[in-house]
């Protein structure tokens, strides 16, 4: 505990912690909608795409990786949403192709055009997140805070429409809601959240931040509003606890946060089965 307090006295650790908690907040807000709309697979696929995009940025030696990663991920998000719509086996397989393909190309590019001496180290941290929170750059933290505020703000303003579109798209459309716009918005925000979360937990673990808090809350609560709020609280708590633990016992940040989420999910499931 003392060690944690000592770490927290460094401003940068505090900022990083704040960035992590805010990222978790955004992912969890969006996660509820994605899980309920049966779109969680999109989160998973997108994280693979984001890895590929990251590799392209690295090979082109673009210092601000976001410029490449964000638009590419957004485009794929929109494509996936359109495909996922006419679901069925084909759409599913197309998605698998896209995400595995993006990963393979990414890894291949990094190996053919090595940008540093330690390729496997780079790849590992892109996939599973920084080994230490201290390796986050200050630019990452600032971007993360701005994006988180934006995503949360948009979510609150659109809350009622997002609910209507999530619960019953046909009804919403018949009432005159521009459902295509909201689906597009959800896809674009998902891309933003995935790219943000990648800094924290790495490409492979981002979908954990999206699905776990949502699923945990759905075990506990029956109203949409309560599920959203509890999902946000669970996600932020898990991020705070996970990051703090990773500092103290020096474990990889992403994996620790995800494991904390797994424990919370198990606890919520247990509470539900006791209630019933």
């Amino acid at each position: 505990m003392n060690e944690l307090v000592q770490y927290l006295s460094y401003p940068f650790v505090r900022y990083a912690l704040a960035a992590g908690v805010l990222t978790a907040l955004c992912s969890s807000l969006l996660g509820v909608t994605l899980v309920l709309k049966r779109y969680s697979f999109i989160g998973d696929g997108l994280s693979h795409v984001a890895f590929g995009a990251m590799a392209i940025a690295a090979v082109l030696s673009i210092s601000e990786e976001m410029i490449v990663v964000l638009p590419l991920t957004m485009i794929c998000a929109v494509l996936m949403l359109k495909k996922g719509r006419n679901a069925g086996v084909k759409g599913d397989a197309a998605l698998a192709m896209l995400s595995v393909g993006a990963m393979a190309i990414g890894y291949l590019l990094l190996n053919i055009f090595p940008t540093s001496a330690n390729i496997s180290g780079d790849v590992c941290s892109t996939l599973f997140g920084s080994t230490s929170i201290l390796t986050l750059s200050s630019a990452d933290v600032v971007t993360c805070v701005i994006m988180s505020v934006l995503v949360t703000g948009i979510f609150i303003i659109m809350y009622n429409r997002i609910f209507a579109v999530t619960f019953d798209e046909d009804f919403a459309k018949a009432s005159g809601v521009n459902t295509e716009f909201y689906n597009l918005l959800i896809a674009v925000i998902t891309a933003v959240v995935i790219v943000l979360a990648m800094n924290l937990v790495g490409a492979l673990l981002t979908s954990a931040l999206i699905v776990f808090p949502a699923l945990s809350s759905m075990r506990l609560f029956d109203s949409f509003r309560k599920v959203i709020i509890s999902s946000a609280v669970i996600a932020m708590t898990a991020a705070f606890v996970g990051i703090s633990m990773s500092i103290v016992i020096s474990t990889p940040v992403g994996a620790t946060v995800v494991v904390v989420n797994i424990f919370i999910f198990a606890a919520c499931s247990a509470i539900r089965s006791v209630k019933k």
Binding site: L36, K37, N160, R161, F163, F167, D168, A172, M218, V227
Partner: peptide
């Protein structure tokens, strides 16, 4: 989607006013 959707009756009825 609606089968296991977590929402209260009031939330759903109100969404008719969207």
């Amino acid at each position: 989607i609606q089968k296991d959707f977590p929402a209260s009756v009031a939330e759903i009825v109100l969404s008719g006013r969207v």
